[in-house]
Design a protein around this nucleic acid. Structure first.
Lengths: 137, 137
DNA sequence: TATAATATAACCAATTAAGTTATATATTGC
DNA sequence: GCAATATATAACTTAATTGGTTATATTATA
């Protein structure tokens, strides 16, 4: 399952993408405006920084801002960064078919189903999501 | 995530669908030929019976057989019978958007991605899977 | 130098997943 | 009738995962 942490990461990035370029928000502000536990925002940020999507500055008047165009960050990337490789079944967690078989028909179906799902998550960028959310409000 | 139990249930049904109509197999035979723990086959069978897909007869020379055409059992049905409603995110476990909102853009995306996945699992029947497996061997 | 902010790691409780164990019940064949 | 074999069902165990908390260190500003 896609975890809440991955979902939170997406929401954090979308929140940042809502404001003009180079807007700095504190973890606390992001947490408050999106109803995410502050601790989780703080916990997630280093991961998003390492991915190259955001930068954080410490100290008073510090905060977080986007460091790349949110139009090129896809939901799939964010999920995989936070949760690791996505797998709809335990079977797909391993890169090989089980039982030393070279081929497995059921595995083929899992892969096909999963790829359909991933293609949707790959087509949507953080920017598009932020715009959709803005339209809703 | 789709559990191993759901995967086992699919494999059990496909195994039964491999043989001519009304073929009776014991739990032990199914378990042995598909490398599934016997206990799990035994544990799963009542569920498959209740779904109307199989029937079991007790006693010596008893066993399990299909009770309907495997061409009309879809993988999605089997998974949902064993695992309950499928959800790729915790968000989709509830039938309502969270936070008392009437609408949520991110939820829309989860639903779209999940439906793409489900449509693949809905298109494949136990019979088709059994045939594909037979071809592989 | 006090304060405010991020960085990082360690920890905890609840749930889920996978599998095991135990017992009851039914049916067949001798 | 009775032993053997098979399903039916529930309870239990173990390990991993998830969601979240706590604690501490580090940095930068006013």
């Amino acid at each position: 399952m896609i975890t809440k942490k991955a979902e939170y990461a997406i929401i954090i990035l979308a929140e940042l993408a809502t404001y003009p370029n180079d807007t700095v928000l504190t973890s606390r502000e992001i947490a408050a405006s999106r109803s995410i536990p502050v601790n989780l925002v703080i916990q997630l940020m280093p991961l998003l920084h390492k991915a190259g999507w955001t930068t954080g500055t410490r100290g008073a008047s510090g905060g977080i801002k986007l460091s790349i165009d949110p139009a090129i960050i896809t939901l799939r990337e964010v999920i995989e960064k936070v949760d690791g490789t996505i797998s709809i079944t335990r079977c797909l967690l391993s890169s090989q078919p089980c039982g030393n078989k070279s081929h497995c028909s059921l595995r083929d179906i899992w892969i096909k189903a999963q790829n359909k799902m991933l293609s949707v998550l790959e087509e949507v960028s953080i920017k598009e999501l932020a715009q959709a959310i803005a339209r809703d409000n």
